[in-house]
Structure formats: C-alpha cells, structure tokens
C-alpha cells in the first residue's frame, strides 16, 4: 500500500489551539505535530488556517477518534469522507485511529469504548481497518486501548490489536501509558504487551499521563492525558526503544494543559531516550 507512515523517529507534540503561536514559532529539529482530525472537520476559518501554516513547516499526524473501527458497524461513510478531505489537504506523514468503538445505530458516544476481545470482533475490526485504508488509499496505524473493564472474550486484547492490524496490513501505534493503565486496572502485566507487540510493526509511540481515581474499594487509573508522563511509563519507554529502536514518539496532553515550553520539556526528554538508542545503533 502506498503512503506509508513517514514521521521522523523523533518526538512530536499533540497540538492544542492555545499553543498555535508557540508551535508555529518552534524550531525543534525533527519536531512534528499531531491533531485529532475531528476538530478540523470544518469548511474554513481560523482553525484550518492555523493548521495550514503549521503543517507547512512541520510533519503532521492525523490521529482520529471517531471511526469506531472496533464496533459492529462499518465506518460511517460521512465521517470517512470528511477524513479524506483532510488527508488530501494535508498529505499527513501519518494517519492513525483506535482499537475502540464509539458509534451504534446512528449515535456517537464521544468516548473510546472497549470492544469485546473475541474472534468475531477481530474479523470485523480487521475488515473496518481495511475498508478505511482502501478508502483513504494509504496505510493507517491503529492504537491499543486503555482499559478499565475486564471483558469476556475468547482471545486476549493484545491479540485483537496485533492480529487485526496484521490481517489488514496496517501498522501499530503503541501507547505505553495505555499498557501501564491496562496492567494496573485489570491486574495483568505490561510484559504481556511488550512481549507480544512486534517492534517492526510499530510506526508511532504515544506517551501520556494518567489520573488516579480512588473509589470505595477500587482504584482505577484513568487515561486522562491530564498529567505529566509518569516515571513508570518513562521506564517502559526506555525498555521498548532499547528493544525496538527509535520510533516517532508523541507527547500527548489534553487536560490541565501547561505552557508550551513545559510540554517541549517532555519532548526533549523523549528525544534524549531516542538519541541514546540512535547513537547505540550507529556505534553498533
């Protein structure tokens, strides 16, 4: 398939409207930006104008949240059409989506809901990824979910994720905060994910912070993207990059958004890890 992921193996940043000016003025070598295409599905105006200017200067990644690939229904043709308009406008370095669902019977539930980990889901998910790629005329990456619920199924969630992408000829977007959150919430281990995810298939890594929610007899880690990246996730990142080699890495922050420079500090921290292993590869 044409249009493979061409993001640089450097750290990028999720682009927020309050940072447009800073982003445009940034001069990071290898810096790239990622947006949710759903926020740019408008006919015109300032928001698209800002993205035009930023995409002119930096590689861009479109990271969708609305295709509902993990649902029982095929991706919404209207949504796909709106996505294609943006893909054609920006020719982004990467297009990605989630192993999740959000639509049923014409209602959009505005969340990344967990699909049941079954063989039946696997076939539907692979089909929906393939339909998306066929329609867009390019490969996409799919992201592993953050989970709060232990769902019944006849395969594991990691199998659903890796196998669906393989069957559809898609790449993987590997979110290390999500595997940490899953392991903590469901009582599994991050090794289950790190061991099963083929590094070669990973086209992008996501790093984000979680929020701890203490309920009566239960503590849940919420994938809020509302806090700095935790030390535990930085450790997972160092291990993964040591094993898989440098990968395009996104710093995600969607809540409690600090100044641009604070997030660029996390970008620099990720680049330091990537640099160590790029150096190691050169030396070897």
């Amino acid at each position: 398939m044409t249009h493979q992921n061409t993001l640089p193996a450097c750290a990028g940043l999720g682009l927020k409207p309050q940072h447009y000016r800073d982003a445009l003025a940034a001069d990071g070598d290898g810096l790239w930006f990622e947006v949710h295409p759903e926020n740019y599905m408008v006919a015109g105006g300032p928001r698209l104008a800002w993205l035009d200017a930023i995409a002119e200067k930096f590689p861009l990644s479109l990271h969708g949240v609305g295709l509902s690939l993990g649902g029982p229904e095929r991706p919404d043709p209207d949504h796909l059409a709106r996505l294609k308009v943006l893909v054609e406008r920006y020719q982004p370095a990467s297009v990605s989506e989630h192993v999740a669902w959000s639509r049923l019977g014409g209602t959009y539930f505005a969340d990344l809901l967990p699909p049941p980990p079954t063989r039946k889901t696997l076939l539907a998910l692979a089909e929906h990824i393939a339909q998306t790629q066929d329609y867009l005329g390019r490969q996409i990456l799919v992201e592993n979910p953050a989970l709060y619920l232990s769902l019944q199924g006849d395969i594991s969630m990691v199998e659903l994720y890796v196998e669906a992408a393989r069957m559809a000829g898609a790449g993987l977007l590997f979110d290390l905060n999500n595997i940490y959150v899953c392991a903590q919430n469901l009582g599994g281990s991050t090794a289950e994910w790190l061991d099963a995810v083929p590094g070669d298939a990973v086209g992008e890594v996501h790093l984000a912070g979680f929020t701890r929610q203490d309920n009566a007899n239960d503590t849940v880690l919420i994938d809020s993207h509302g806090a700095p990246i935790s030390d535990a996730v930085w450790d997972l990142y160092a291990r993964f990059i040591a094993a898989a080699g440098p990968k395009p890495t996104l710093i995600e922050r969607d809540e409690n958004i600090p100044d641009f420079d604070v997030l660029m500090g996390e970008v620099a921290q990720a680049n330091a890890v990537l640099g160590r292993h790029a150096q190691g590869a050169d030396d070897g």
Partner: peptide, 23 residues
C-alpha cells in the same frame, strides 16, 4: 454477562461520565 470480573461493574460509570463530559 459481558464482564469477566464482576467487581468492575461500578467502573462502567467511567464511560458514562466520559460521554457526558466530552460532549
């Protein structure tokens, strides 16, 4: 019937809240 761990039942509130809060 869809949960492997019945202790997770209250956690559906996370998704109910996500829907409301995002919109």
């Amino acid at each position: 019937g869809h949960l492997e761990n019945q202790n997770h039942m209250p956690r559906f509130a996370i998704h109910q809240s996500n829907f409301r809060v995002t919109v």
